[in-house]
Amino acid sequence: MVRAASASVVRISAERRFPERPLHSVWAARELLVVLAKRDVYLRYQHSFAGISWAILQPLLTVLVLSAFQLLMGNRQTTGVPYPLYAATALVPWTFVVHALTQASHSLPKHMGVINKVYFPRLILPLSAVMGAAADFAVGMALPPALMIYYGIAPGLTLLALPIFVAQAVALAAAAGIWLACLNARFRDTANSLPFVTQLWFFLTPIAYTTDIIPPQWQLLAGLNPMLGILEGFRWALVGVASPWLGTWIAMSWLVILALLGSGMLVFLRSEESLADFL
């Protein structure tokens, strides 16, 4: 017979309490995490003609539109990097983070049926949504190198730092995803307003424009937007563009992400055992 891998002693109590060894139980359920993520990706593209190439088409089309605007507005070049490449290096991680946290925000109501019938660490659900989005991210990451080849730009040694910023993007997606999943379980306004909020966020973040547009007195404050450190990190690692604030922004971004991740986990784990009651 197959052996079920549940704990040998289960204690159930009405006491409000924090789950015992929550990270251990998530790790124990890692296979479920992977299966769920794979299933998400598979189902997303199953009846699609372009399939996972959407992961590249989406940032590519956005880059084309932004570049067209840039030309119409007078083609201001300040970075020394062709604008389409400059935009693409930020758009790919941006698209991933927004896609991941949007999917994560829907993850609990989407799996309501299972939550109501089977016990497993619920943290698996937003995390698997992020993992599924990361598959698209991996495909989308082909776009900046393709443009670099097209423009004949070779990466420098800064490329070695890229994994830091990839990890940073994944951490932000997970942190925001856990928070949003939790909020959306209680207030469906969260997921409903998310497209609008992320659109505002897009304009507030230097993706389509360069960071020197931010007035000097706002440069430090802008670093509180955790996306800024990540996007500038990608630009620096891939094409060597560095703003004077780069180091500060990266550090600020990590601080914001870690604070979000820690608080998000606490809130999620505290409310997880009553999820089935209010979903």
């Binding site: 052996r3 079920a4 891998a5 549940s6 704990a7 040998s8 002693v9 289960v10 204690r11 159930i12 109590s13 009405a14 006491e15 799996h111 049926g113 299972v114 939550i115 109501n116 019938k117 089977v118 016990y119 055992e273 009553s274 089935a276 009651d277």
Partner: peptide
């Protein structure tokens, strides 16, 4: 549902020893 940890009790407690499998429906997921 309370015994299988899907739903949190409002009062009292329970202890289950050994591996537990709860089949509250077939074909979950």
């Amino acid at each position: 549902k309370m015994l299988s940890r899907v739903v949190k009790p409002s009062s009292g407690e329970a202890v289950i020893r050994g591996r537990m499998t709860a089949l509250l429906e077939l074909g979950s997921g």
